[in-house]
Design a protein around this nucleic acid. Structure first.
Lengths: 247, 247
DNA sequence: ATAGAAGGATGGTAGGACCATTGAACAATT
DNA sequence: AATTGTTCAATGGTCCTACCATCCTTCTAT
């Protein structure tokens, strides 16, 4: 009995790929994405006008617009009005990731605690990678960022300071030479910043600047563990701050 | 001289935030997302019908549909046809992340090398976390997955086997208890699987099963470094396989 | 009881009309 | 000659109406 079923399973493969009611706009998105994957379309290219595209695809303008809309908030194209308007293939940006993650937080599928925790872990090996790969130029950029942040602190420009603070992590992530990691860090940092802006006001952590200088010193000395420890400590206190805030 | 400029800059703030022409559908998306963020809308809730929603917002059905479309491919809502159709708030899934990352690869902003590399690094600390947090049940699931994969290998069911193979990493990521990390791994694994399906055929790595059993043994012994080493080695050979394939 | 037919609700698509914005060519003014 | 204002065409943004396809419910005939 069991072996019969088994044999049938093995022969017949009863697993059908689910029938998807193909909606026109999805088909169009797929076609355009195919052109991307095949290299026929590249960043900077311009697509024909909506009405013309609709004619080419043989669909209504509504359906075509939904396709363009879909591609637009996927970050694949940008749409401009007016005479020089139209749909242009964009450079890839982490914007779509940010939106996706933000939605996950709002939907309750990911908590801010998980987000900050993940960020800590990723940054931890970012500093390890940075110790291997960062150049003197990278360190120079980081140092200038710290100086700038310090200056903004003195001037009490909190908004700009927060941006500069976030920029630090982006710079750090960029030293890894891995653009995906950089984008993920960018996204996580972005979300964290928005969250703090709306929940924690201009509260600031003591000793941030000093801590970062220590991190940078460890990086230059190529001491990944020391740098990671220093960074993690700072991030963990932020993590706890958020955890306390959200309760 | 310099202090003058400085003072002016500080006083006048010549930096205007760019004027964004708010499009109707963006406004609607924002309203619905606000309801999500405030908790007024939760997964499972149903939105009114399109025509009714359009009436409520005082906009045309087209604009409203574009908003729904936007939310749909962000993974926030799902749309169903028919009498019991309509827009429902979804549970959060990593689908949107997968789409975003896939686009980034197609746009050339992220290479498959960077993707597999990032995946290796993230999995590396996943096993560290797993050693701290995984329960016996988790190990049980992993073991069953390995058994199942072995069985599929014997039966030469390559498609199913590939899915089971991917499932291993998802299970592993889930033991961390951090849903964000799990989703990121899910996404990266998904993309990798699609890529292999279309580029590498059914090629398989030798000794995969044995390697995974070793990983599991190390995990159970709570030896994170040994587990990470074993896993990384396997993943790195895959990484090189892909790198070679793409050239 | 059960199978089938009819109807209503809802999303999907088409097509037309009009508005708003943009940039370029052109005209008027200083 | 340079600047300013005007017109015009291209293009996306929005609205509207009509119709189709699909799904569920309800009724009906067997």
């Amino acid at each position: 009995m069991l072996s019969d079923e088994d044999a049938i399973e093995t022969r017949e493969r009863p697993q059908f790929n689910q029938v998807r009611t193909a909606r026109i706009f999805e088909e169009i998105c797929g076609r355009i994405r195919d052109q991307l994957a095949s290299g026929a379309l590249k960043p900077g290219d311009k697509l024909p006008a909506e009405r013309e595209l609709a004619r080419q695809f043989g669909v209504g303008r509504n359906a075509l617009r939904e396709a363009l809309r879909s591609l637009e908030n996927a970050g694949v194209i940008s749409l401009g009005k007016g005479a020089k308007g139209g749909a242009f293939i964009r450079e890839g940006t982490p914007g779509a990731i940010t939106v996706a993650l933000t939605d996950l937080v709002h939907l309750g599928s990911v908590s801010m605690e998980e987000l900050t925790e993940a960020r800590i872990f990723i940054l931890e090996f970012v500093v390890h990678l940075a110790c291997q790969r960062a150049t003197d130029d990278d360190f120079e950029l980081l140092e200038r960022n710290i100086d700038y942040t310090e200056e903004l602190t003195r001037k009490r420009l909190f908004d700009e300071r927060m941006e500069a603070t976030a920029e630090f992590y982006n710079l750090l992530a960029r030293t890894t030479g891995n653009r995906l990691i950089a984008m993920i860090i960018d996204s996580l940092t972005d979300i964290l910043r928005s969250f703090m802006k709306s929940h924690a006001g201009n509260r600031t952590l003591d000793g941030l600047i000093e801590s970062r200088r220590r991190v940078l010193r460890h990086l230059r000395a190529r001491h990944p563990d020391a740098a990671a420890r220093e960074l993690t400590q700072q991030l963990t206190s932020l993590h706890h701050l958020l955890t306390a805030t959200s309760e």
